[in-house]
Structures are given as C-alpha cells and as structure tokens.
C-alpha cells in the first residue's frame, strides 16, 4: 500500500499528492526491491522527482542501503543537473557555492525527515517543482542580488505613468501576447523560464499579479459577466490592469533581450 501523507486537513483527511504522483506510486507498489531500483534509476523513462522523494524519505519502506544508495544517487544526479540550470554560472556569482548549499540542505532535510515525526517534507512529494523553487528563492535571497550588473535590477521603466495616467491602448494586449509566447522553444527552456520567474518575482506586487494572471491565460476584460478577468480578480479597472501590464512588460523585456543576446 502507498504510504499516505501524515498531514491532514482540518477535517482529518490525509493531504493528497497530485493524481499522477499517486498513480505512479501505486504502479510501483509491491515491486521487489531489485525491480524497484531498476525502475527508479531508469534514465529512458525517468520517474517524477516526487516519486524519488517518496522512496528516499519513508523508512517504513524498509529499503536497506543496498537499494537506497542507487535511488539516492539517481536523485542526486538529477538534482545537480536541475540546479545547474536554475542557479547558473552565467548570471549568478558564486553559483557553484549556492548550488552546493542547496543540495546539502536537501540531503540533510531528507535524512532528518526519515526519523522525524513531523511531516516537514510532505510538500516535496506533492509539488517538487514548487518546493525546490521556493528553497532556491530563499537561499538566493540570503545571498543577496544575483550580481550588481544584473540587467533587471538596473532596469529603469521607460515610462512612469500612474494607474490613472494616460490612456493605454490595445498595444498592451499585443505586447502581452508577444511576451507570453515569445518563442515556444525558449519558454520551454528551463534556464530561460527560471530567469523569467526570478524577474517576475522581482516586480512590484501589483505588476507581478497582473502579468502572472495574464501569462496563465486569464483575459484582461470580457463582455461575459460570468468570465473571470484580471480586472475582477485584482479588483481594479481594466485600464489599471493595462497600465500594470505595460510597466511589467517593459521591465521583463529587458531580461528577455539580455537572454536573446546570450
């Protein structure tokens, strides 16, 4: 049986993992340790990170060193590769030191979690991308700005309008569309995406929310009162949304252009 998460809702129901993770774990449940190791270390059809975390953190599974070591090494190899992409030498000073700190912290967290009664790492089995991305943000924040020459930190908005300022035309929509789909191959690139995420997180809150919702595909406005729009979600006027988007896109474009040059 797949071990349920110990953390429960206020009604006492165990927290759920994402459906695809629960399914992957069910498919692996009951395999003999040797088969399990073979499946988890397979590079052709890599299992999600959440699955590796599950097998690494639960002592109840009774995996001895012989079987746990190859699973750990597979996890470590994939973690190092992922960290090299998001904490890249190209734009962060001391990237190697930061990556080392991150991987050491994760290894320590898993080891402690194996004998702790607290469910500190449950979320890593639910949404590994978000958990690691949060940890990266914390550690990077501790180390200070990426570097003084960072293009975004030094970016100056081209215009400084207030929310009630000049009329913003539909050009913002076009700019937003271009920004959202600049180049599919690039947006799928983890290093680029990660850089963009950092840039979005560095935006002021109102701009970050406007651009984040637009990027997810939420419309700025709609004739249909049933449709959720950014204006409704952020409780502001459409014009304000457009102004925020315009300011955000100008800043983000600096990052995009810097990326293009590399």
């Amino acid at each position: 049986m797949v071990i349920p998460l110990k953390k429960t809702t206020q009604e006492g129901k165990p927290y759920q993992r994402r459906t695809e993770i629960e399914q992957a774990l069910s498919a692996l449940d009951g395999l003999a340790p040797d088969q399990l190791v073979e499946r988890l270390t397979c590079t052709q059809q890599a299992v999600p990170f959440e699955v590796l975390i599950y097998f690494l953190r639960h002592t109840e599974l009774e995996l001895g060193a012989k079987h746990l070591e190859p699973i750990f090494c597979t996890f470590y190899g994939r973690l190092e590769a992922a960290l090299r992409k998001v904490v890249s030498d190209a734009w962060i000073d001391q990237a190697a030191t930061i990556r080392e700190e991150l991987s050491e912290r994760i290894v320590e967290m898993i080891a402690k979690d194996r004998y702790s009664q607290e469910e500190k790492m449950y979320y890593w089995e639910v949404n590994f991308n978000h958990a690691l991305s949060n940890l990266c943000t914390d550690v990077l924040r501790k180390h200070g700005p990426a570097r003084e020459t960072d293009s975004l930190i030094n970016a100056r908005p081209l215009t400084e309008e207030s929310d009630s300022g000049e009329e913003v035309s539909h050009e913002v929509d076009i700019a937003a569309a271009e920004f959202i789909n600049p180049n599919p191959s690039k947006i799928d690139d983890i290093a680029f995406r990660s850089r963009l995420m950092d840039a979005i997180n560095e935006l002021p809150e109102d701009e970050r929310r406007a651009v984040g919702l637009r990027w997810q595909g939420m419309p700025i406005e709609s004739q249909d009162p049933e449709v959720e729009t950014i204006a409704k979600a952020l409780e502001c006027t459409e014009r304000t949304v457009r102004n925020r988007l315009k300011r955000a896109i100008e800043k983000l474009r600096v990052v995009l252009q810097a990326e293009e040059l590399q």
Partner: peptide, 19 residues
C-alpha cells in the same frame, strides 16, 4: 492568485536531462 503565479512560473525540473 500569488500561489497560482508561483506554480505557473516554477521551473519544470523533471524535464532536465540528468547529466
């Protein structure tokens, strides 16, 4: 809203080929 943005922008680590 903030969580949705964080989730949407989080890198997809599984897609990195392990070197």
């Amino acid at each position: 809203i903030d969580l949705s943005i964080e989730l949407f922008t989080a890198p997809k680590f599984d897609e990195v080929a392990a070197e």
